[in-house]
């Protein structure tokens, strides 16, 4: 179950909407923040706290890619490889991550420091390649720059 403070936070979210269903996505975010990823237990807890059917919670959560459906590293790198970023060298960066950190798409490093997900366009086509680390946005990436940035995430 959630801690008291978290339950309070969820109650505040619930109070914003006439129907608890509307509080589902924000609550899933909270669960992801608290548990690291949306395990079955986490979704069960979400369902309980909103008095919603578990199957519905899972159905909704599984639709969105921004929810983690398996345990991930401490930091999630989401790198764009769509056309603009690809032309500007995103695929070289994928290779670089593999060589430098043994980090491959949909894999978590053994020290659980990083997970890599290849994502679709994040709207930075003029400054590609671009990536998100957790919720921080980084653009104009090169091999040197990406290493420099990642050093900040231990």
């Amino acid at each position: 179950m959630f801690k008291e403070t978290i339950l309070k936070e969820i109650d505040d979210i619930k109070a914003r909407y006439p129907d608890p269903k509307s509080a589902l996505l924000p609550t899933l975010y909270i669960a992801q923040r608290e548990f690291g990823w949306l395990s079955h237990e986490a979704m069960h807890v979400v369902a309980q706290s909103l008095n919603l059917p578990e199957a519905m919670v899972r159905g909704t959560a599984s639709f969105y890619t921004m929810f983690k459906h398996k345990p991930m590293g401490r930091h999630l790198i989401q790198l764009c490889t769509n056309v603009s970023c690809m032309i500007l060298g995103a695929e070289r960066l994928v290779d670089f991550l593999k060589n430098r950190y043994s980090l491959e798409p949909n894999i978590t490093t053994t020290d659980r420091r990083f997970s890599l997900v290849i994502m679709e366009c994040i709207g930075a086509c003029d400054r590609g390649p671009a990536m998100l680390v957790n919720t921080d946005f980084h653009d104009s990436l090169t091999e040197e720059r990406i290493e420099e940035i990642l050093e900040k995430y231990k």
Binding site: P53, E54, R58, G59, F63
Partner: peptide
């Protein structure tokens, strides 16, 4: 049927697009 009539809400569509499928919670 499960949601709107029976009210058990035990199953749902999981995943999206070509990977959508009906599944119970477990």
């Amino acid at each position: 049927m499960c949601n709107d009539v029976q009210g058990a809400s035990a199953i749902n569509i999981v995943g999206r697009g070509g990977r959508s499928r009906m599944e119970p919670f477990s």
